[in-house]
Design a protein around this nucleic acid. Structure first.
Lengths: 340, 340
DNA sequence: CTGAAAGCGCTAACAG
DNA sequence: CTGTTAGCGCTTTCAG
């Protein structure tokens, strides 16, 4: 078994004190250049490795940011993460990422782990079935900043970075109405989540504003993945009174649903217009291209992380800004254009 | 500022020793049930939080597995990660994930961080431009197991979990030849990476076996993303002697390339047959559906993680198994079927 | 079933 | 520019 080398070992070998070795390794200014080199070389020679735990224990500081997300299975999420990593690592922070796998129970465990690992701050997008956010209270109580993004929980004690889901839901629905659609279906996620709830509200409001009665049979909530899309497609194919438009809350699901409908002989957009959400690459790849909402994912990651770090670096009280709403926009493509 | 509660605080309040508190918190068997409850309750009351650093420092053990991947932007990678997380957390291990962003320099830094964080083992898929794996030597020297998956480096000291890229490259090419194609283009990634190198070798061998001369103008290497696909498409549209088939090393790129070609008036598969790789959902969503290779991603994650953990739990020497090859298979779809 | 005591490796005063 | 010293919070013998 390999014996771990410590700064004491280096100190002994070099006839220096552990303190000097520690400083030398950290490239401390007040250390002789020559001494530094001797230290670094010896460390290399003996295979010394820095002990993060001892350091963190001593410093009571970790320089680590925790990120909890539902899953990293979408283009959206991987873009957000890339941005966060960039911002954090440029600012000298490490990032630890964990997935809740869309389960609140796992989210709680993950939060606990992050807490015990003493992250300096937390960036969170909530799981599918998260109903309370009590598991983040311990952070808030300790003044550890928590920033929610995308799937957020609104409270006075935390910051939320979002897009205007209500408006986007409204705009999409209105666009479909403009195309002459009256029987507009909505396929979306769990309505407990703000994002889906808000889009749904926008959908309902638009219907109401245009005097189209809301019909609960035209709402499907589910997982919003490939399977859910094809299942919804099958269901629609079996309906006596088919919708003339569908507003789906994510592009992968929309694409999958569209595929099933096309296989069933439905013409898109002539028979049924389709709109998705996110501007996932898939929306530009299928035929017809899917009308969608451009989600500023890189920006969202960048802003959430920057905001957190600015706060950590001292300064800016968090709750002064309570909600950051990013610009997003409707991208109209062929899948919804009945009137060309 | 919140004062951190330690086991000493709990001990004092409860008139117990720190040792007993520590045991109680860990649900140690030799502690009175009643005492345990008192400890846990008091901890809750005072808002105690466990200090992972102190514990790790003392125990010299972290129960953490590090994962380094190029990017988590593909369906493939997110599936692999989901599997790894499941296996690890079922076995009581934490996972820390970091992305090299396809850069060797970042990969080196990440490896260093993992090392300093004393991960018990490492799961790695190499960056695009990684040429040496010296940065993993420190792990190997210290008997910290490193398992490579997908994008691997072959050496005697580490385990690699892969599919048979050579065979798949060969099979795809042969399939295209079977369809009557003679001018088969290959769009792939950096040939330094085993996966692309092997597929390329398979491609070349198949050509040779069927007496088709290899033409270097029919090879494009690049990033294999959406942009690379459309650029390749444009390039092909501008060629005087166009290929009659294209074998692309990933589905997203294949789909994007196909879109561009179709927009340019090329019929798929009549004019040009197309095959991708990975069985990404996108391959089933576009039209025509793309012929591809079913990549057992979940299994790959599961096996790599299980293997690592079995090794850690004591037992099984790593190098006895040096390479694990998973079954993968050609999925023939419309995009390559000239002879129906 | 509980306690005493030592030490994991590092850092930050403070002192020179 | 370098050294001394104390302590971060936990676990683990060993002892009772």
């Amino acid at each position: 078994m390999h014996k771990e080398i410590t700064i004491y070992d280096l100190a002994r070998e070099l006839n220096l004190s552990p303190a000097t070795v520690s400083r030398g390794l950290k490239n401390h200014q007040a250390i002789n250049k020559n001494t530094k080199k001797r230290i670094v070389d010896k460390a290399e020679e003996l295979g010394y490795r820095f002990n993060t735990f001892a350091s963190n224990l001593r410093k009571k500081k970790t320089n680590t940011i925790g990120v909890i997300i539902p899953r990293m299975n979408s283009h959206f999420m991987s873009t957000v993460l890339a941005a966060m990593e960039k911002v954090a690592s440029d600012a000298g922070y490490n990032i630890i990422i964990s997935q809740s796998m869309e389960s609140m129970a796992k989210e709680e465990v993950n939060a606990k782990t992050m807490f015990d690992n003493r992250v300096d701050g937390l960036l969170v997008s909530l799981a599918y079935d998260t109903v309370t956010i009590d598991h983040f209270q311990r952070f808030i109580k300790r003044n550890i900043p928590v920033i929610f993004f995308d799937r957020v929980h609104e409270s006075d004690e935390s910051v939320a970075v979002v897009i205007d889901n209500y408006k986007n839901g409204y705009d999409i629905t209105r666009h479909l109405v403009d195309q002459g659609c009256k029987k507009i279906m909505h396929i979306t996620g769990n309505l407990k989540r703000n994002v889906y709830q808000e889009r749904f509200r926008g959908y309902q409001q638009a219907l109401q504003d245009y005097n189209i009665p809301y019909n609960v049979d035209r709402l499907i909530t589910g997982e919003l993945n490939e399977l859910a899309g094809s299942e919804a497609g099958e269901k629609i194919l079996g309906m006596d009174e088919k919708p003339d438009a569908i507003f789906v809350s994510n592009d992968v699901c929309a694409a999958s649903c569209m595929r099933t409908l096309k296989q069933g002989g439905i013409r898109i957009p002539e028979d049924i217009a389709i709109a998705g959400f996110n501007n996932d690459p898939i929306s530009r790849m299928v035929e017809p291209n899917i009308t969608t909402v451009n989600y500023p994912s890189y920006q969202m990651g960048e802003i959430a992380a920057t905001h957190l770090i600015n706060h950590l670096k001292g300064g800016v009280a968090l709750h002064t800004t309570n909600k950051i709403i990013l610009k997003s926009e409707l991208l109209i493509r062929e899948s919804s254009l009945k009137r060309k």
